[in-house]
């Protein structure tokens, strides 16, 4: 069954360990510019939101890719970018609403989360349990909705 990464805004401290774990696992260096995950901090309301590929059921990135370099991996259910096919046109970067496709500023290559072949390092190194890797069943979708609602209530409390 497909698994997905869930996020709990109550637990995230904005430490960016997920970002460093990602860049180390994928590029072998500690460089937040080379990570497939990014953390947005909204200091006005004290909320940290990691943004990463949501492995959409109907992905826009695959729709716009002119060479069909983004396809679903049947084993993990992740949308995977084939670097040999990618021509670096950045259409996926322009269309993605979640900043799931990113540009490596050093090589101009496109980077995208592939769920680390079913063992995401960002989840492994999240000390606070803010990121969870769970099976994509109904409970997971309810949890995802709950996480989003938590964000909403946090804003309302402040306001």
């Amino acid at each position: 069954m497909q698994k997905l990464i869930l996020f709990d805004p109550d637990k995230c401290t904005g430490c960016r360990r997920c970002v460093l774990a990602c860049s180390l696992a994928k590029e072998g260096v500690f460089n937040s510019e080379k990570a497939r995950i990014g953390v947005i901090s909204i200091w006005e309301v004290g909320i940290h939101v990691p943004m990463f590929c949501q492995q959409c059921t109907k992905p826009l990135c695959a729709d716009v890719c002119p060479v069909g370099a983004i396809s679903r991996n049947e084993k993990t259910g992740a949308m995977v970018l084939e670097p040999n096919l990618c021509i670096g046109c950045k259409m996926c970067v322009t269309v993605c609403p979640f900043a799931g496709c990113l540009i490596n500023p050093h090589t101009r290559a496109i980077m995208k989360c592939d769920l680390c072949d079913g063992d995401p390092q960002c989840v492994k190194y999240c000390e606070f349990g803010a990121l969870e890797f769970v099976e994509a069943d109904e409970v997971a979708y309810i949890k995802r909705k709950a996480g989003v609602d938590k964000l909403a209530t946090a804003f309302k409390q402040i306001a």
């Binding site: 990014g38 006005e44 309301v45 609403p97 909403a152």
Partner: peptide, 25 residues
């Protein structure tokens, strides 16, 4: 960058959060 920020801050009709909430805060 702005797109993800707006999503994180909650855009109207998507996460049920409005930009107005943030400006209010």
């Amino acid at each position: 960058q702005c797109r993800t920020r707006i999503l994180a801050e909650g855009s109207p009709g998507r996460f049920g959060l409005s930009q107005a909430l943030l400006s209010q805060s």
